[in-house]
Simulated scan of single mutants.
Amino acid sequence: MGLAWSLLDQCYPPASRWTVDDVPDMTGIVAIVTGGNSGIGFETCRVLLEKNARVYMASRSKTKAEGAIVDLRRLTGKEALFLSLDLADLRSIKSSVEAFKSREKELHILFNNAGVMFPPLGQLTADGYDLQFGTNVLGHFYLTRLLLPILLYTARTSLEKKARIVTLSSIGAELHKCIEWDTLKDGAARRKKFNIELYCQSKFGNAVFAQELARKYGEDGIVATAINPGNINTDLLRYLPWFLSAPARYFLYTPPTGALTPLWAGTSPEGSEFNGKFLIPWARFGPPPHDSDDPVLGEKLWDWMEAQVKGL
């Protein structure tokens, strides 16, 4: 009954008491938004630009990003900056971070927003991982890990004495209670799974990662949160068959609404105290998904991910 109520509460949340009008002036703030060319990421970029932040749109497709940057310029009069990033290719992530560090000495907010949902089972990352776990979890882990030195520097030297990492999970995390290690790379165990199971596992993994990040670096000024942004009508639905996606759109919310909770975590003054919290729609605290706050599991996932990127 507890799970059923939690799912219902998150699918049909009460009106938000916090709005984008509450976002403070962000002059001098540097932010990266992965997957910022569409959906929740686009709306996150839009609000940050309107509030005078310096925004890097980290995207795989330069063409799509350039189109989104033009749209943002029209909407805000401000210019987002393109950062080439392919989370499904670990070696390219290192190049992206080096490109960013050549331009900036500080990073105040990292929005780990990008993701993939329900792709065909045959799709893998460049390194042979399940596309959903490899992109949503491992890719963001490696990006975050490489950016940690500049985030920690920012936390030490900024006025707030904090740097924030906002990782998007999903209500799907509530539906998966463990990590099945033999499904993270391609193999017989993975091929027996449905893509929806693998998606929920990746979103559970996002929550586990954020909790471990909070434990490891909270005392150093890192504020790590995991977010269920809500059930939002975005391009993530592109892999759903039409007979599911068409009716589903009538029960979904808009991207500006989906950006509320990540922006609350990333920009609000009170958000500097949110380390280790799991946030749910709209701009509320919720209980972390089952066992995602288990320190033993968190350490095991962190060690596994460290092993995957060793030597890159």
Rank of each mutant, 00 (worst) to 15 (best):
W5I: 11
S6I: 14
L8M: 14
D9V: 10
C11L: 14
Y12S: 12
P13V: 07
R17V: 01
R17G: 10
T19W: 01
D21M: 07
D22E: 14
V23L: 05
P24Q: 09
D25R: 10
M26A: 05
M26I: 06
M26W: 05
T27D: 09
I29R: 15
A31K: 02
V33A: 01
V33I: 12
V33D: 00
T34D: 06
S38V: 10
I40N: 02
F42H: 09
F42P: 10
F42Y: 15
F42W: 03
E43P: 10
E43I: 04
E43Y: 09
C45T: 08
C45P: 13
L48K: 00
E50P: 09
K51Q: 11
K51M: 08
K51S: 06
R54H: 12
V55N: 08
M57F: 04
A58E: 00
A58K: 13
A58Q: 10
R60D: 09
S61R: 03
S61D: 11
S61C: 07
K62T: 02
K62P: 09
K64P: 07
A65E: 02
V70L: 12
V70H: 14
D71L: 09
D71Q: 13
R73H: 14
L75A: 15
T76E: 06
T76N: 07
G77C: 08
